[in-house]
Simulated assay, not measured.
Amino acid sequence: MAGRRGRYYPSITPDVLLRAYSIGLFPMAESADDPEIFWVEPEMRGVLPLDAFHVSKSLRKAVKRAPFDIRFNTRFEAVMNGCAEETSDRPSTWINTTIRQLYTELHRMGHAHSVEAFEDGELVGGLYGVSLGAAFFGESMFSRRTNASKICLVHLVERLNANGFQLLDTQFTTEHLKTFGAIDVPKDEYLTLLKATTESPHLPFP
Rank of each mutant, 00 (worst) to 15 (best):
T197F: 03
F205H: 07
E122V: 14
E105I: 07
E30K: 12
F205W: 09
Y8E: 15
P27S: 14
D33G: 02
L132M: 08
Y128D: 10
K178N: 02
L194K: 10
K178T: 05
I95A: 04
G24N: 13
E85V: 03
V115M: 07
T173F: 11
E86R: 14
Q166T: 12
K61W: 09
E189K: 06
P49D: 03
E36A: 06
R90Q: 15
E30D: 14
W94P: 02
R19D: 14
Q101G: 03
L59G: 06
C152G: 01
D89W: 13
T173C: 15
T104Y: 00
L102Q: 06
F53I: 05
D51P: 07
T87E: 11
L18C: 07
M44H: 09
S56E: 01
V130I: 13
M44G: 07
P49G: 04
P42M: 12
G82A: 02
F72P: 00
S92M: 00
M141P: 00
M80S: 05
F68N: 09
P91E: 15
E30Q: 10
H202S: 14
D69M: 08
A134M: 02
L123F: 04
A162P: 00
A20W: 13
V185P: 05
D51R: 15
A29E: 03
K178G: 00
H155K: 14
E158C: 13
S140R: 10
F165K: 02
P14Y: 06
F53K: 06
M28R: 10
G125E: 10
S56M: 01
A84L: 04
T146N: 09
G138R: 06
F38Q: 08
V40D: 06
L132I: 08
P204T: 14
A148L: 06
N96P: 03
S22N: 11
M141K: 00
G6D: 15
S131T: 13
H107S: 08
S143Y: 02
S22H: 12
L153S: 02
T97R: 12
R5P: 00
S92F: 03
V63L: 15
D120F: 01
F118Y: 15
L167N: 05
K178Q: 13
S114W: 01
T197K: 09
M1Y: 14
Q166I: 05
F180D: 01
E86Y: 07
E86P: 00
R4F: 13
T146A: 05
V157L: 10
S131W: 04
V154F: 07
P186K: 06
A66Q: 14
Y8Q: 15
T192C: 05
R90F: 06
F53A: 02
V16K: 05
M80T: 01
E41I: 05
L123T: 05
I95F: 03
G46I: 13
M1V: 12
G82E: 01
T179M: 06
T74N: 06
R60N: 07
M141D: 02
L123S: 03
L160M: 12
L132Y: 10
V63T: 14
A162G: 03
D34P: 03
T173E: 14
L48S: 05
R19L: 13
S149N: 02
K64S: 12
K61G: 04
E30N: 08
T104C: 10
L59F: 07
Y21M: 11
P201T: 15
R108S: 09
P201Q: 15
A32K: 13
L50D: 12
A2F: 11
E105K: 11
F180T: 02
